[in-house]
Design a protein around this nucleic acid. Structure first.
Length: 280
RNA sequence: CUGGCAUAAUAAGA
């Protein structure tokens, strides 16, 4: 069962839905009964491709076979529902969990919080954070990153800083994603000085910026029309040994195009092709 | 009965 489940997972990761299905039927042919993990893997796979009908069907099927859904089952389903903007239904799944006596964990709550945040229901997201604490579930770095990204998106950097402080007081170490969100929040306000100060602060705290961190800064410099500094940061990124990806190139290329500078745009396109970075 | 191995959540462009 372990082997089959692993193979199904691998196929889903590559988007090979048909192959995953074939493995499942082979399992059944060999009377190797799928267990909770097998079902969770399938449910997660269907959720990722947005096929909630199939995912929900599988959850019902496993119940009919006498298998009991666990937190993995519920979180996969909730995440799937959230990603297709069916947050209310995701919430109902949480209610169902509680009804059957399953204790939600920080993953469950973070999933829902993210669903509400991305749906613009910020107040509800924070209510859930309080609710999890009341239940004795500690928010973790994922939870804080989700909250911080959400409020940064709506331009509340001050509140983001308060959350940053709060998480550190809890003994949680902000990571690269935490900073990337906060940096984008500052960029969005047009406060590049603070954005660069935060990049510096990361270095001091030994938190390595990623390609995404740099791409956020590059993107906002481009938006401001400051191509010169955008390229400086691009260079800095490469000097740190980070390989630019197609997203970073797209940011620069489209910005050059908008400025009517097709020459530099093509230069970059050739450069990325030469470096075996596939344009998308 | 105890333990181990497979499955779930967070950041950027067009």
């Amino acid at each position: 069962v372990y082997t089959f489940s692993t193979v199904i997972h691998a196929f889903f990761k590559q988007g090979k839905l048909e192959d995953a299905k074939r493995v499942l039927s082979e399992m059944e042919d060999r009377r190797c009964n799928p267990n909770v993990v097998t079902y969770n893997t399938l449910i997660h796979g269907y959720c990722k491709i947005g096929d909630l009908t199939e995912a929900i069907g599988l959850k019902n099927a496993m119940c009919e076979k006498g298998l009991v859904p666990d937190v993995f089952t519920y979180s996969a389903l909730m995440n799937g529902l959230c990603k297709v903007r069916r947050v209310t239904e995701a919430r109902e799944v949480l209610v169902e969990m509680l009804e059957v006596g399953l204790m939600p964990n920080e993953v469950i709550y973070t999933t829902l919080i993210d669903g509400y945040m991305k749906g613009g229901e910020i107040e509800e997201a924070f209510k859930l954070k309080d609710e999890m604490v009341v239940r004795g579930i500690q928010p973790n770095v994922f939870t804080f990153n989700t909250l911080i990204r959400g409020i940064c998106k709506v331009g509340k950097s001050q509140e983001a800083n308060m959350l940053l402080t709060e998480m550190m007081e809890m003994g949680l170490r902000p990571d690269c994603r935490t900073y990337t969100s906060v940096i984008e929040g500052r960029c969005k306000e047009g406060n590049m000085v603070e954005a660069f100060r935060l990049l510096d602060e990361m270095a001091k705290r030994n938190i390595a910026p990623s390609v995404v961190t740099y791409s956020v800064i590059i993107n906002w410099l481009c938006k401001a029309g400051d191509m010169e500094r955008a390229h400086q940061v691009f260079k800095q990124m490469e000097e740190r040994g980070l390989m630019p990806n197609s997203m970073v190139y797209t940011t620069l290329i489209s910005s050059h195009c908008r400025q009517g500078n097709t020459e530099d745009a093509f230069k970059l396109l050739y450069e990325m092709v030469k470096r075996r970075i596939v344009p998308d």
